[in-house]
Amino acid sequence: MSELLSANVLTGMLNTMLTLATPLLFAALGETFSQRSGVVNLGVDGIMLLSAFGAFYVVLTNGSLFLGLVVAMLIGIAMGAAMSFVSVTMKAEQGVSGIGLQMFGLGMSSLLFKVMVGTVKTVQGFPRVRIPLLAEIPFLGPILFNNNVLVYIAFALVPICWYVLERTTIGLAIKAVGQNPAAADSRGINVDLVRYGSVCFGAMLAGMAGAAISISTVNLFQDNLTAGQGFIAVALVYFGGWTPVGVMFGALLFSVANSLQLWLQVLGVNVPAGLANMLPYILTIVVLTISVSRGKAPAALNRPFLRGEN
């Protein structure tokens, strides 16, 4: 057990934590925007899958990582637009349309993979970028400043998202729409437009989350590559109380727990693997239960806006 506290293990654990947290963070930050505007998008996992395939395919055939990332984002936006059309314009039940989107993404990504690629192939993903000087800091330097570019982007997005939500008129509009769409509407805010924008932006980040798996961590594509991470990301939004910083802590907690359970197994600590596998899920529930602040849900969450009826 004491081995767990050695510097080598701690460095390793924190490193793995960042790798595992990155896709969750992208997707959960995106979902935060979507939910702040009042739309629960349960289709995140499907968006991640299709984008992951798109990014992978571009890198496989074209070799450009940048282009792969852009394609992943575009696929995300397209699927976000579909989600918005169904749930904002058509006022559909968001839980169900999200599940539809997820099924579509799961099926479509596997189908395209089968038809266009056929067998598992690896690609050269985003390389680690060592940030000079900062990476020299003892202990923390190699953990924080020797990652691939998507890890940096994901964590840089946290303050940016916070700033947009809390300090800009766009953020104000998003929150107003999620809190009280009728009031926002009467103040001249285009509710549907704001929701379309938020959902699409969120879906774009979900697309980046997909790319963060297929062309940055595992560097390949396979059926159901995300294995449900999109749903975990949605859960983390509730964990984070709809704030970017809270969401980041959620992603880090979940990932460090996962990293910890792997280390417990590697070091031969006598816990059944199944129990170790449960750790991240149990810990997330427990920590949220005992934490003081829970965050307040946007009042109009999951509620389509019909002018004159709310």
């Binding site: 599940i99 539809g100 596997s110 089968k114 059926d223």
Partner: peptide, 12 residues
């Protein structure tokens, strides 16, 4: 996989 894609569309 097409089956899932079609079912997803039906649900949407």
């Amino acid at each position: 996989a097409l089956v899932n894609a079609i079912l997803g569309l039906v649900v949407l």
